[in-house]
Amino acid sequence: MESYIGFADRLSAWFGKVFAWSILIMTIGVTYEVIVRYLFRAPTPWAFDLSYMMYGTLFMMAGAYTLSRDGHVRGDFLYRLWRPRTQARVELVLYILFFFPGVIALVVTGWRYAARSWRYLEVSTMSPANIPIYQFKSVIAAAGILLFLQGVAQVFRAIICLRTGAWPPHAADVEETEKLLMETKSLAALEHGSEAVDIPSGYGAEDRKDGKRP
């Protein structure tokens, strides 16, 4: 199970980092559009299509990466108070009852949706440039497959936690700005021998029994 978790995390991270470049493409496209529209009075017919395609692709393909880093939003005002084994039991039930049925439906429906679009090489009816969108619709099924693979890894994490009483650590290659600022303030207080900086409980992995961020 641990080897599969490592494989799924690396796969999700690779796709997440590759498609993160969509932000740069979208930024360049929007910047170009603003320049030619307002300085040269020559708006493009494709900038809007490019922006929503890149944003949609990034949103979909980053889902598995975010899941592998335990970065999805969770209403955890009760969850954080439970012991790791209780958290694992609840997560296991929720993954089986809700996550996998939803993701399987996403893959099946997205595959049919994309296949129909590929058959007649669909273009956007809302675009004056007739931008092709059949390849864009393929992202739906691809994102669902990645989520399914990562979801299996999350189930394995829950099983390991049930056995050991501790969550396997999530890979962390990106830190939230808020967490970095709090750590910087804490370090500054220690260097000056002061306890003036009060860090609320709940910030930092050391305040959590399961090692997860709140």
Rank of each mutant, 00 (worst) to 15 (best):
A142P: 09
L94M: 14
K17D: 10
W46Y: 09
V34T: 11
S12M: 10
G144C: 08
F40D: 00
F77V: 14
R74S: 15
F100T: 02
E206L: 07
V155K: 03
D49P: 03
L149T: 01
R37S: 04
K209D: 14
M1E: 02
V90D: 04
F19P: 01
D76M: 08
L67M: 15
T31R: 03
G144T: 04
R10G: 12
T44A: 00
E191N: 10
A8E: 01
R89F: 12
A205L: 09
A189N: 15
G211N: 01
W21T: 06
R80T: 14
V18H: 14
A188P: 05
T109G: 07
K137H: 15
V197S: 05
R80D: 13
A143H: 00
A153G: 06
G29F: 01
T31G: 11
L190A: 13
G110E: 10
A171F: 10
A47T: 05
F77P: 12
Y203K: 05
F48V: 05
A62G: 08
T57Q: 03
K179F: 12
K17G: 11
A205H: 10
L149P: 00
Y203I: 05
V34R: 08
H72C: 05
L94K: 15
G71V: 06
A189T: 12
A64H: 00
G29I: 02
Y32T: 00
I96E: 07
Y38H: 06
T86A: 13
D198A: 08
Y65Q: 04
V103D: 00
F40M: 02
R80G: 10
A153K: 02
S117Q: 10
T31Y: 09
K209R: 10
S194H: 11
L149N: 02
L39M: 10
P200N: 07
F99M: 05
W82S: 12
R74L: 14
L187T: 14
F99C: 04
A142D: 11
I35S: 03
E206I: 11
Y95T: 06
W21S: 07
L180Y: 07
G204H: 02
G211S: 02
P128G: 03
T27C: 05
S186Y: 09
V152F: 12
F99N: 03
W21C: 07
A141E: 08
T109S: 12
V123R: 04
G56S: 11
L39A: 15
R112K: 12
K209F: 13
Y65E: 03
F40N: 01
Y79V: 09
L106T: 04
L50N: 00
V103C: 01
S117R: 14
H192P: 07
E176P: 09
F7R: 11
W46A: 00
I23K: 06
E2Y: 11
I159R: 03
L97N: 06
I35R: 01
Y120E: 06
F19D: 00
Y134I: 00
A62L: 06
L97H: 04
F136Y: 13
G102H: 10
A172P: 15
T66V: 05
Y95L: 15
G193S: 11
K179S: 13
T164M: 09
D76L: 06
N130E: 03
R69Y: 06
S138R: 05
W46R: 00
H170W: 04
Q135I: 10
L181D: 09
P200A: 09
S12F: 07
I199N: 11
I96C: 05
A166M: 06
A88Y: 04
V93E: 05
M126H: 01
W111F: 14
F148S: 06
Y79I: 09
V36K: 00
Y55Q: 12
